[in-house]
Write a protein that binds this DNA or RNA. Structure first.
Lengths: 353, 353
DNA sequence: CATAAAATGATTGACGTATTGCATTTTACT
DNA sequence: AGTAAAATGCAATACGTCAATCATTTTATG
């Protein structure tokens, strides 16, 4: 029932256990023909290493680290929460997790933080990354130490990480556009967009996806150039106020970035009927805004799934195993009716304005 | 780093390893004061059993079974596919899975199938259930044998299972209604609904959720009584044809049930502009219909997440451990833009019409 | 107090793998 | 052929738990 053991493989291959072990764990000093015999036997018997026994034997400890931007960003607080929950559970499987705070979206800070990881002897790290050549050297150094590296939420330079876990932000923008378009039912409209900054890849991607779909499938809608908010709720508030007051022409608001607290405040203060509103990331205040009918849609990237996948992937990479089947990841649409029962806790509370 | 062992606990409690073992595994013949000492030490040291070592020692095998309705229903084929993928991966962790086919939605057949599980010495079973008193006896018998039971997708009588994994179908209906309402942008409309049958709990639930939201928030829309299709694509086809031909009054179609192949076929044959269309469950043909712009939305229950949760939950129940953190489960909205890259395979192909 | 019963302790061999030291055999090279 | 180097085999210990045996101590009972 439970598969063949390494002894079985050794027997089938006609070599000793020690040799089979040398092959499987690349200890060297093995003749090519022995390697072949063992590999062949492994394939024939369908041997798979009993990871539990292996880890027990070598007192394996998985040392993982997550590099997460600091700050009061509610989304990343949610990410943190999921990491901590998982870490708490996985401690029973000898997985240790450290969350390393990084100054938000500063290439220099990220570069430093990655550099400092090198001394800590981690087995794997997940990094909320940036696209910058400055990161390449520290990442290469890390990797040279045998540390598995994945990008999380925001990707790293492609050649310097093993995988990326996050949504496709172009898809996210397209999704927002599809529903915004639908909500107009063929009527003419103008959509005011907001972004933190356009040099950040994800905001630009979302905007592009949004524009693409509107241009292709909703010719009666006009996408207004984004107002830049630096993801600051105060700036966002003022931008939203002016958009809301600018007569009747604006039929929808779409914020690709953060700072939604400001947007929501502005909407709350709008007595008249408001335009159709779409934001990103389900957090305490955006959830509440949905419930209160202050916004219509939230496009979420399911950090719970992302974190889940990150742990599974890191462990698979470290053990050089196959990735277990995991839920697909795609931008997820929330309206006020399909919200998760899970009430987000205090850690998710955002800055107020 | 890696926590205390049972030896540590025994030492801390001032008893022998054997006694500590007797307490932890309820072997009896232990004085109450010893039990207390050990329990206390466990709590003090934060001891958690090393499941890997335990399973290794006792050659633990998790024998699981899934009871899934047969038939050419594309959704359950997708469920099967996810179960098989997970089973394939989990075989490396000595989990064996059997999928038991049950004649679709027949209480008698389900009753029989559950009865037959009793002889197989399973550790846990997940059952696509029904609400029927007839199931109570066989479920009770199963449980008496120490088999963990959970409801999957469709619940069992509440007292006879440990948990239910599936979406809230009222929520699913509400979600469909919210978006259907949005798509009208305040215009007057009439929504033709379709259902397999109304005695089946989930269809009725979806319809009720749908009606509730339309009534509450979209007073200009009228929900037409459902046409019953028995989930048969042929019947569905004819029902859809008549709805599509009945003049201009129908502005949206909502099918809470299966048989969407028929609906899509009818829509394809409609040369003129079609009403807003919402269906349930993302499968090969509904995905294609989204891509082809034949329907607008699919409300999906994420069987990948459900199956994932089912495995995790069954194992947690069997080991009497805590459930690991897993992604939340809620009705998920698909438009043509946020479809999973994962191309569903042949097994998902539905009957043609 | 004698005796049986109950409780406890001590010990051992699995489970499948990792890891190491040492002995032995095979290969390669002069 | 002789020798060094490379390859292989053998044996033992460890990881944390389970499960069982047997010996010994403690407790309860008449």
């Amino acid at each position: 029932m439970s598969g063949p053991t390494l002894s079985d493989v050794a027997n089938a291959a006609g070599v000793s256990y020690a040799t089979a072990d040398r092959v499987l764990n690349n200890r060297g000093n093995v003749a090519q023909k022995s390697i072949d015999k063992v590999r062949d036997a492994v394939a024939r018997l369908g041997y798979v290493r009993n990871v539990a026994a292996a880890n027990l034997s070598r007192k394996r400890v998985y040392r993982l680290a997550f590099l997460i931007p600091t700050g009061s960003n509610a989304f990343f607080n949610r990410v943190r929460k999921h990491i901590l929950e998982a870490a708490n559970h996985l401690s029973a499987e000898s997985v240790t997790v450290e969350i390393v705070d990084v100054s938000a979206f500063s290439v220099g800070a990220l570069q430093d933080s990655i550099g400092q990881l090198t001394g800590h002897d981690y087995d794997g790290v997940a990094i909320v990354g940036l696209q910058s050549g400055l990161l390449e050297q520290p990442l290469a150094d890390l990797r040279a130490r045998g540390v598995e590296i994945i990008g999380l939420v925001s990707d790293l330079p492609v050649e310097y990480r093993s995988a990326y876990i996050g949504i496709d932000n172009i898809v996210a923008g397209r999704t927002a556009a599809r529903l915004t378009g639908m909500s107009h039912a063929g009527r003419i409209g103008a959509i005011q967009t907001f972004a933190g900054a356009l040099d950040a890849g994800d905001h630009a991607d979302r905007l592009q996806g949004f524009r693409d779909v509107i241009a292709a499938d909703f010719p009666d809608l006009r996408v207004l150039d984004p107002i830049l908010t630096k993801d600051d709720p105060v700036v966002m508030y003022e931008a939203a106020c002016s958009a809301l007051q600018s007569g009747t022409s604006v039929t929808a608001l779409y914020n690709v970035g953060a700072g939604n607290v400001g947007l929501i405040k502005a909407i709350k203060e709008t007595a008249a009927t408001r335009p159709f509103c779409v934001t990103h990331e389900l957090v305490a205040h955006s959830k509440q805004a949905l419930i209160d009918n202050h916004i219509d849609l939230v496009i979420d990237q399911r950090p719970d799934i992302e974190v889940n996948r990150a742990f599974a992937l890191l462990r698979a990479l470290i053990d050089q195993r196959e990735m277990p089947p995991m839920p697909d990841l795609m931008p997820t649409i929330f309206v006020r009716d399909n919200l998760p029962a899970d009430t987000f806790n205090d850690a998710m509370e955002d800055q107020t304005i």
